[in-house]
Design a protein around this nucleic acid. Structure first.
Length: 349
DNA sequence: TAGTCGTGGTG
DNA sequence: TCACCAAGACT
């Protein structure tokens, strides 16, 4: 490590000692690391998710399941329901699988990056983050914050994702031998509060003296590829109510909203042309309005259909459950269907 | 490698 | 209002 990279790490750690955010899953700078379970849980929740959104979920999960063994022993449907609203539900499925794998080895997380990387739901970033933060290993932690800070610090002109190799090499070069966990968290705090995507606060930055990108306008780094327009899809969802309860299904597979409770629908997630089939083709459906919802790679216009018949005691055609309307918030509906349910309930008055 | 996979905050 | 995007993983 040459003098300039040492200077960067020292300047950043000094800044972190004075400016670290206090977060429920974090230990103060320089203090013993937190419980690996809490580090792992927070890191998974924080994947592509803001600190503000994670807060209440982290509190509920750690209160309800204080250890990885408690989580491993939990009812899977309850875990999925507790994750409802946080998004990227494959994370919750992998969370359960990972908890079971760790419980099977005595409830002890492995302490090396390579072993962590082999667990379900831990990719390159999360394995490095847990190794560094919970086990004080030297690991090169690269998330979107680090990518942005490093791309600016070294004025990397190559567009993403091609620039990732160079960014990683640079991140490796400035990662210190000790306090790698604090260094990683410092980079993320810096990216979150100072070296922000838009309107970076270079005047407050402890690395501005070493930043090659600042002169050219830090905001133009990292260079990103042109974005593609999101397609518009249409679909229908079906509200079937009886005796103060609504019929809910559980979505299967590994695709969209898999494992989550939901309203029956016409298969919009597979074919978004709005021509899918209703669960009761001959029934009298009434128009219940529309819900618009944006997903990562398409926008959905979901038509809500209200069943107005009374001869559907023989329903349902497939597995599901009657869920009491006065406990609907405990069903763990993902946001799309929570919106649809709210729309249906609003029409009952 | 490029597509899939949620949601809510922000400027 | 709306485009952008966050402590990415998986296939």
């Amino acid at each position: 490590m040459d003098a300039s990279t040492q200077t960067i790490a020292a300047a950043l750690l000094g800044w972190y000692d004075a400016n670290a955010r206090t977060l429920p899953w974090r230990s103060p700078p320089g203090s013993p690391p937190p419980d690996p379970y809490r580090v792992w849980l927070s890191e998974v929740m924080l994947q592509q998710t803001t600190v503000a959104a994670v807060g209440p979920y982290f509190a509920r999960f750690t209160t309800r399941w204080p250890t990885v063994e408690a989580l491993a022993a939990a009812d899977e449907a309850e875990v999925m329901a507790a994750w409802a609203g946080l998004g990227y539900y494959a994370r919750a499925r992998n969370l359960i699988a990972c908890a079971k794998a760790v419980a099977a080895r005595g409830g002890v997380f492995p302490g090396t990056e390579a072993e962590l990387r082999a667990l379900p739901g831990l990719g390159a970033y999360t394995a490095a983050a847990v190794a560094a933060i919970a086990f004080e290993q030297r690991a090169v932690v690269v998330d979107a914050n680090v990518e942005r800070v490093v791309a600016r610090l070294f004025a990397i002109d190559e567009p993403l994702p091609g620039a990732r190799k160079a960014i990683r090499a640079r991140a490796d070069a400035i990662t210190p031998q000790s306090r790698a966990g604090d260094f990683a968290q410092a980079m993320m705090d810096l990216g979150s509060g100072v070296c922000t995507v838009r309107a970076p606060r270079c005047l407050l930055c402890p690395l501005s003296h070493a930043c090659a990108g600042r002169a050219a306008g830090a905001e133009r780094f990292p260079v990103k590829p042109p974005k593609v327009a999101k397609p518009q899809r249409r679909g229908r969802a079906f509200w079937i109510e009886q005796d103060g309860a609504v019929w809910l299904v559980r979505r299967g597979g590994t695709g969209m909203l898999a494992g989550m409770r939901a309203l029956p629908d016409d298969g919009w997630s597979a074919r978004g042309d709005g021509a899918g089939e209703a669960p009761l083709p001959d029934a009298a459906w009434a128009n219940g309005g529309a819900v618009r919802h944006g997903f990562t790679h398409f926008d959905l216009d979901l038509q809500l259909m209200l069943y107005s018949g009374s001869d559907w005691v023989s329903f349902p055609p497939d597995a599901g459950e009657w869920w009491p309307l006065d406990q609907l918030e405990t069903a763990g509906l993902p946001t799309l269907f929570a919106k649809a349910a709210q729309l249906a309930m609003a029409q009952k008055e």
